[in-house]
């Protein structure tokens, strides 16, 4: 019962249920929080993509090194 009342009160007065301490800002139109959120969200993805790209480049380089060449001299085994 109490839980339902709390939910109803939150629906009726959404401003009072605003518990995010970082969402309030004294300056109108301040978008720093948005930019910081975007920055921190995209940074690990960008880093992972960079690392993946580096691995891909190294794998290609390594594959070029080990690719068999038709010009390899024949080896005779007795």
């Amino acid at each position: 019962m109490i839980r339902r009342l709390v939910v109803l009160a939150a629906l009726a007065l959404p401003g009072a249920a605003n518990a995010c301490s970082t969402c309030m800002d004294p300056r109108e139109g301040n978008r720093t929080l948005l930019w910081v959120t975007i920055f921190l969200s995209l940074l690990p993805l960008g880093l992972l993509a960079s690392i993946g790209g580096f691995f891909w480049y190294r794998a290609r380089t390594a594959a070029a090194v080990v690719a068999p060449s038709p010009d390899l001299p024949p080896v005779e085994i007795r």
């Binding site: 080990v66 068999p68 390899l72 001299p73 024949p74 080896v75 005779e76 085994i77 007795r78």
Partner: peptide, 8 residues
């Protein structure tokens, strides 16, 4: 004797 091509 056998002749092969070296392949890493």
């Amino acid at each position: 004797s056998t002749t092969i091509r070296a392949r890493p």
